[in-house]
């Protein structure tokens, strides 16, 4: 089933080429981790996959058909933050996903349909370990719990692809390890295709079945914006470790420049 094909993809903003000559085939059920120095187009690539941005050139195909040019229910996403709705309780957040999906206009279910959806939402929340706080509001949850909630909300309707934009970047190391176990377990159970951006190289190796390294292969010192980034290494991960990357590349990825969170106070 669902195979992603990316054919000669380019993305430019005016003169600034962000991505160039990007080709990729991803079969359903793969867990791709995306790494690369800051400003190498990982987030832009995710936005293209999501449909939030349109490619300047090239094609994005899902099972041979072009992807819709706007975000839709076949693709789920979890951002680093602002992923859940502050005005809804934990249970209602997940219920919302089912209601929006099943009730096109009102986005609201009633009676038996609603009860059934509530049960489904509660079962999903149990899977991510949030059964104890169904009636709490997101502001009362820790950052890790909010991300669990966001994952549950995205997965309750079983999208074909799950996009993760540094979902654990703002979490403490201990909680991050828990979340890594959680996402891996859910990925195994659901078989969803995952694209996950991370700044943590070891996380990329630990979680993925495939590591995609974004970098700029060409560089013109006179015109730094003339060449874009592309996928320079596409590494199938089976018993591989971070040491298998060329050392200078690993260094560049690890020397993370300010993340968005740090640069925008």
């Amino acid at each position: 089933m669902s195979t992603f094909s990316i054919r000669n993809l380019w993305k430019r903003y005016g003169e600034h080429v962000v991505l160039e000559r990007l080709n990729l085939e991803v079969r359903s059920g793969e867990f791709c981790t995306l790494v690369g120095a800051s400003g190498c187009g990982k987030t832009t690539f995710l936005k293209l996959l999501l449909g939030q941005e349109a490619p300047s050139r090239g094609q994005l195909l899902l099972d041979g058909r072009p992807l819709p040019a706007e975000p839709g229910p076949e693709r789920g996403i979890v951002f680093q933050r602002y992923s859940v709705y502050p005005h809804l309780t934990v249970l209602d957040n997940v219920l919302l996903a089912l209601e929006l999906h099943r009730s096109r206009w009102l986005g609201r279910l009633f009676g038996r349909a609603r009860r059934q959806a509530r049960e489904q939402a509660a079962a999903m929340l149990e899977q991510v370990g949030l059964s104890d706080c169904l009636q709490r509001y997101p502001a009362e949850l820790s950052g890790g719990m909010q991300q669990r909630l966001a994952i549950a909300q995205s997965l309750v309707r079983a999208p074909q692809v799950l996009l993760l934009d540094e979902p654990f970047g703002a979490l403490d190391p201990g909680i991050r390890a828990d979340m890594q176990l959680l996402i891996q377990r859910i990925w195994r159970e659901t078989g969803v295709t995952v694209f996950m951006i991370t700044h943590d190289l070891s996380e990329g190796f630990k979680l993925g079945t495939r590591l995609l390294v974004f970098d700029r292969p060409r560089h013109d010192p006179q015109a730094p914006q003339a060449f874009g980034a592309t996928i320079t290494y596409d590494i199938p991960l089976r018993n591989r470790r971070a040491g298998d990357l060329p050392p200078d590349l690993a260094e560049r990825i690890a020397a993370r420049e300010p993340t968005r969170e740090e640069s925008t106070p």
Binding site: L50, Q52, E70, P71, G72, P73, R75, G76, I77, F79, Y82, S83, Y85, L96, A97, E99, L100, H101, S103, R104, W105, L106, G107, R108, Q153, S154, R157, P159
Partner: peptide
């Protein structure tokens, strides 16, 4: 929030309402 609501299947109307 707006992007995510769309990935959850919201139409413009249900996005506004919910």
């Amino acid at each position: 929030q707006i992007i995510r609501a769309q990935t959850l299947g919201a139409s413009t109307v249900s996005l506004v309402l919910r």
